[in-house]
């Protein structure tokens, strides 16, 4: 019994780690609940139930912005953020790009997509080609619409500012993860007189976009954009599920605040804490 002669912390450190990470159990429960709610709402939507989704002004303005670019004979600039394709914001941005490309295809308007990661380049090219094909304009696809311009953050900002200054796009659509370069791009777009629609889930960059852009999608609105633009009931069902979970979380926050205020909320805090 070698272990009995060792201090307790050494014994526990020699014990094999558990197979299942019990400390993450609350997250698993939350994930299962979340998945169930989303699936239930989607099934509900499939049955043809009417779903109310509030209007998002920024998304309503996309078609108007592309229309303006068409009237002026100028291109539309779409920047899908500056993160790699494994970032959810970039995936959301590429999804929105598909919708925007379909509108530019219908209006026969040039679209420019500067990117800073080759994987985003490949995905964006594929999405644009598919969008043009579905719009029945596969002969007018320009493979150079998506351009790899730089791999560095500030070099990308300089390249985008150069495109805005030289090509004067009538509409700038900035969607995805942005950081310090957000204001550099948005202010240049403002100076160029472009109509600007931005969307990001980075809270620190939102004030910059609000100050410089005509419309701004905040946080969850970015992820909801592709479903909202598609108008498909099944996708809108997913958005309603999200709303339900938000109400549930707000309810939990209120209960937690009350319990912590009266000094009886430690059990709830430890229940919801997860590593």
């Amino acid at each position: 019994m070698l272990t009995l002669s060792l201090p307790f912390h050494e014994v526990t450190s020699q014990m094999p780690a558990p197979l299942f990470r019990l400390e993450r159990l609350p997250l698993l429960i939350f994930f299962l609940l979340f998945a169930t709610v989303i699936i239930l709402y989607i099934r509900w939507a499939k049955k043809g139930e009417s779903l109310f989704i509030r209007k998002i002004a920024g998304l309503e303005a996309i078609e108007e912005a592309v229309g303006r670019a068409t009237e002026m004979g100028k291109p539309v600039l779409f920047v899908p953020g500056i993160q790699e394709l494994d970032d959810m914001q970039t995936i959301a941005a590429v999804s929105i790009l598909g919708r925007v490309a379909r509108i530019t295809a219908q209006y026969e308007t040039q679209i420019i997509v500067p990117v800073n990661y080759p994987l985003v380049l490949a995905a964006s090219q594929e999405v644009i080609e598919q969008a043009y094909k579905e719009a029945g304009h596969d002969d007018s696809v320009n493979r150079d619409a998506v351009r790899y311009v730089a791999g560095e953050q500030m070099a990308l900002a300089a390249a985008i500012n150069g495109i805005i200054t030289r090509e004067r796009p009538a509409a700038n659509i900035l969607m995805g993860a942005f950081f310090a370069e957000s204001l550099l791009i948005a202010e240049t777009g403002y100076a160029a007189g472009s109509i600007q629609i931005a969307g990001t889930a980075e809270p620190e960059q939102l004030p910059f976009f609000i100050a410089s852009c005509d419309y701004t999608l905040m946080g969850e609105e970015l992820y909801a954009a592709s479903s909202y633009l598609s108008r498909e009931p099944v996708l809108l069902g997913g958005l309603k599920g999200l709303d339900f979970m938000k109400i549930f979380l707000v309810f939990l926050i209120i209960i937690g605040t009350v319990l912590m205020t009266i000094g009886a909320g430690d059990w709830l805090r430890s229940l919801l804490m997860a590593e």
Partner: peptide
């Protein structure tokens, strides 16, 4: 929540807009 919801939609094959579909 939005990111988690979108991940679920992609995993379940409901959201295909990232492929332009």
């Amino acid at each position: 929540l939005g990111a988690a919801s979108m991940s679920l939609r992609i995993m379940l094959g409901i959201e295909r807009t990232y492929m332009g579909k």
